[in-house]
């Protein structure tokens, strides 16, 4: 088979044998591409030192006919992001973003959006002076791309405006007004939370960095996003525990 050429961000890289590495790339046109980089750990390998998270570059690989593990032939750096991993907090943050993006990057359509989102976040690494806000910003866009972020404009039951204390229905993954929520299993969410989520969804990362939320609003948004992320990726996100340990709101 002829080699495939594309661009990709390293989202996973680990030793396979004494000389080879398993490297996963998030690509704009093929979603998640899993490769075996043979001989990448040899001192004279042209791949040595390049296959680290979150490097971005041109890759050439030979697709496998029998499995989803392809053979990496070449990787040339386009950009690397030293600021993204310069501090413990940012490193933990971008590990989480890489795992989250690769957890749902099936196929070209979704993969392309997630690739752009991750690349955009990496390029703005130096502006990430408030990681809890940055995390919410990323998760909201992530859920939006996956199509699982409940619409914020109106009640999912009656279509009417959401005033006062709205409620969230985990079973239906939607916002409901108090009237429609009657008799359903829901949790109460104060109006400030809806406004904050809407603000984060509508604004650029730089503006969201300056957003001030009360501890209670933070907890509510984080809890809601955590629930939506968990129900959409259907796997345990291993890097999240580390992120929660090193970054506290």
């Amino acid at each position: 088979m002829p080699p495939c050429k594309t661009r990709g961000i390293v989202v996973r890289s680990r030793d396979y044998t004494e000389t080879s590495r398993l490297v996963n790339f998030l690509t704009p046109d093929s979603g998640l591409v899993k490769t075996l980089a043979k001989g990448a750990l040899r001192p004279a390998s042209p791949l040595r030192g390049k296959l680290e998270l979150p490097n971005y570059g041109h890759l050439v690989y030979y697709p496998s006919r029998t499995s989803d593990l392809h053979v990496l032939a070449q990787f040339d750096l386009i950009e690397h992001f030293p600021r993204a991993v310069a501090t413990l907090e940012r490193s933990a943050f971008f590990h989480y973003l890489a795992e989250l993006a690769s957890a749902a990057a099936f196929g070209p359509e979704l993969g392309g959006g997630l690739f752009q989102l991750l690349l955009h976040s990496l390029r703005r690494a130096e502006q990430l002076n408030a990681l809890p806000q940055g995390r919410i910003w990323f998760e909201i866009r992530y859920l939006y791309l996956l199509g699982v972020l409940p619409p914020l404009a109106a009640c999912a039951g009656c279509g009417g405006p959401m005033a006062g204390t709205v409620r969230f229905s985990p079973a239906e993954s939607s916002w409901l007004c108090p009237k429609c929520a009657a008799g359903r299993e829901t949790v109460a969410v104060e109006p400030g939370v809806i406004a904050a989520v809407r603000y984060i969804q509508d604004n650029r990362l730089e503006r969201v960095m300056n957003l001030r939320l009360s501890p209670r609003q933070f907890r509510t948004i984080r809890g809601l996003l955590r629930y939506l992320v968990d129900s959409s990726v259907e796997k345990k996100l291993k890097s999240r525990q580390f992120l929660d340990q090193v970054v506290r709101p």
């Binding site: 590990h95 795992e99 890097s239």
Partner: peptide, 10 residues
């Protein structure tokens, strides 16, 4: 070593 993507922490 700490490997966040494998869930290996301090």
């Amino acid at each position: 070593k700490i490997v966040p993507l494998d869930g290996i922490g301090h």
